[in-house]
Amino acid sequence: MSQPTGSASLGHAQQQPAPPPPDLVEVTLTINGSPKTLHVAPWTSLLDALRLQLDLTGTKKGCDHGQCGACTVLVDGRRINSCLTLAVMQEGRAVTTIEGLARGDALHPMQEAFVEHDAFQCGYCTPGQICSAVGMLEEGRATTDDDIRELMSGNLCRCGAYPNIVAAIRQVMDAQATDAKGTDAKATNKAGGPS
């Protein structure tokens, strides 16, 4: 979708002339903690900007229509589908992708839990699952396994790794709850990518 389609379709029977090269728009985003200035065509989705311009291919394109969750990233700490927003619409915001969750060589607790619980098979949905799970814990609305299933329903897994995904998230959620009881400070500093 990063190319304009001049193709004929019903109601637009005439072949359009090749579109002129697009006017690029300047966008500044904080990507995984570092400011980046990009020049993008207005119709570039955030997903395509991440994958094609910034070479951050951890974020996946599954459907490109908001239906699968593979493209989930965190924008200012909130999970969204990067395929259904334009890069220009996110001007000035902080984007955290799967590449930005680990601290150096130390995996994010959610990444560790996914490995520990074997919460994937092919792995294609996994970056989206992990970013979504991190966003969900930040929202703080889930308490039961059924809550996890409902609030993670925007992330499909064709391999059907759901039981292990729920178990992995559960583990991180419980660990955070225990942490929060110990030190109040930690509760506000939970998962959410490098700040």
Partner: peptide
């Protein structure tokens, strides 16, 4: 309606 990600947008 929709999913948590979509409702955030």
């Amino acid at each position: 309606g929709a999913s948590a990600q979509l409702r955030n947008m």
